[in-house]
């Protein structure tokens, strides 16, 4: 099972800056292992961020996103103490959801 994400959500003026560090191999499907076999692709396909049940960002990713992906974005309407939830789904169907409190 994947490790938890590191999420930091900070209120800057009237907008909330969210920074996420996910733990994922992001295997491209291009690499070969020592035996010459292609390593199957394994990467995060979609990411959704919600704040109070409202989607504030959704993303579709390809294997070109770097290993242990980093993502940052800003949205308006957040307040201190609110929760921001991030969910990712990879191409094997694995999911992980983590949340952070806006500080």
């Amino acid at each position: 099972m994947a490790d938890p994400m590191k999420i930091r959500a900070t209120l800057v003026g009237d907008s909330t800056e969210v920074r996420v560090l996910m733990s994922h191999e992001m295997e491209t499907g291009q690499r070969k292992d020592a035996a010459g076999k292609t390593v199957p692709a394994w990467f995060i396909q979609s990411v959704t961020a919600t704040h109070n049940g409202k989607t504030v960002l959704s993303a579709q990713w390809g294997p070109a996103v770097a290993k242990n992906p980093f993502l940052s974005f800003k949205f308006k309407g957040g307040a201190k103490g609110d929760k921001v939830q991030i969910t990712w789904t990879d191409n094997r169907g694995e999911k992980r959801t983590d949340e952070a409190t806006i500080g």
Partner: peptide, 17 residues
């Protein structure tokens, strides 16, 4: 590489690696 949908209320700035 990546595409992001920006709903209203979210600022049009994203960064990733």
């Amino acid at each position: 590489a990546a595409s992001f949908d920006i709903p209203p209320g979210t600022e049009a700035v994203v960064s990733t690696r």
